[in-house]
Simulated scan of single mutants.
Amino acid sequence: MNDHNLFSPSEYTAALLLYLRKHPARVHASRALEMGPGSGVVMATLLALGAQSAVGIELEALAVQATQGLLDQEGLRARASLVQGDMWSACGDGCYDLVVTNLPQFAAEHIEGDGRLPSWSAGGIDGRRSVDPFLQGLGRHLAPGGLAVMTHNVFLDFSKTEAMADALGLRARIAYCASAPLPAHKLACLSPQVRARFEGRGIHRMGDYWFVDFDLVEISWKHDEA
């Protein structure tokens, strides 16, 4: 297996990196958590921008190794902690000022021909297989005044995320919108029902090329805005 393909950052990751670089004050001196570091580029960026500390929770052993290697390469390992485990169950009682994540959220049960780890990309038929547990546990680990930032593609239905956040005393808002190329092998994994629902309303074709829309979503405590 080609490690470059395995850990090559996606357009979603690039958008998250841009967000962090545009808002360095939100990173500086924070206790940061990344859920699912993957290649390690987001975690490394958090530390390079001055996070006090950064914890990474990662399901895949190969991704833990990749993140460790990148942090070592960049001289950022001293303020980092990596835990291999399943989302919040691996997080203990920690609370964080900044939580960032690019979870698997493509609306498919499996994705073939991706050259990536089996746990990456596919988020179940509605894309929410990992997103919902993330949101359900976020309130226990987001510090007062804290902020969570997540990538959020069109399949997830922002109104559902907004309602889940609201029920937990949190507020979700779209920080900005973007679009990414949709490879043919991923397009082929969409069910006919999902494709019919979103074609022209979140997934778009131009000639032989397809694109999918996604957002960056900020989540904060409602009482912090009062």
Rank of each mutant, 00 (worst) to 15 (best):
residue 184 A to I: 11
residue 127 G to M: 01
residue 110 H to T: 13
residue 123 G to V: 05
residue 177 C to N: 10
residue 30 S to Q: 07
residue 11 E to A: 12
residue 124 G to Q: 05
residue 45 T to V: 12
residue 34 E to L: 06
residue 6 L to M: 13
residue 17 L to W: 11
residue 180 A to S: 00
residue 79 R to N: 09
residue 142 L to H: 00
residue 176 Y to V: 10
residue 37 P to S: 08
residue 140 R to E: 08
residue 139 G to N: 09
residue 202 G to P: 00
residue 79 R to S: 11
residue 141 H to I: 03
residue 150 M to D: 07
residue 58 E to V: 09
residue 104 P to N: 02
residue 90 A to G: 01
residue 20 L to V: 07
residue 63 A to H: 06
residue 97 D to T: 07
residue 85 G to T: 05
residue 130 S to K: 14
residue 213 D to P: 08
residue 185 H to C: 09
residue 43 M to R: 09
residue 188 A to Y: 08
residue 46 L to V: 02
residue 196 A to M: 10
residue 105 Q to A: 12
residue 168 L to S: 06
residue 124 G to T: 02
residue 59 L to S: 03
residue 17 L to Q: 15
residue 105 Q to T: 12
residue 23 H to P: 05
residue 200 G to I: 01
residue 163 A to P: 01
residue 77 R to Q: 12
residue 89 S to H: 11
residue 200 G to E: 00
residue 81 S to D: 10
residue 12 Y to H: 15
residue 132 D to N: 06
residue 51 A to D: 04
residue 56 G to S: 08
residue 182 L to M: 01
residue 153 N to D: 07
residue 11 E to H: 14
residue 116 R to W: 06
residue 208 D to K: 13
residue 99 V to D: 00
residue 7 F to H: 05
residue 126 D to A: 01
residue 192 P to C: 06
residue 45 T to G: 09
residue 66 A to R: 11
residue 69 G to Y: 14
residue 119 S to G: 05
residue 148 A to I: 00
residue 120 W to T: 14
residue 115 G to A: 10
residue 18 L to E: 13
residue 11 E to Q: 14
residue 136 Q to T: 13
residue 198 F to H: 01
residue 208 D to E: 15
residue 90 A to I: 03
residue 88 W to L: 06
residue 59 L to H: 00
residue 17 L to A: 10
residue 7 F to N: 08
residue 170 L to M: 07
residue 159 S to G: 03
residue 6 L to N: 12
residue 208 D to A: 11
residue 215 D to M: 12
residue 204 H to Y: 13
residue 83 V to H: 13
residue 161 T to R: 02
residue 106 F to W: 02
residue 163 A to K: 04
residue 225 E to A: 13
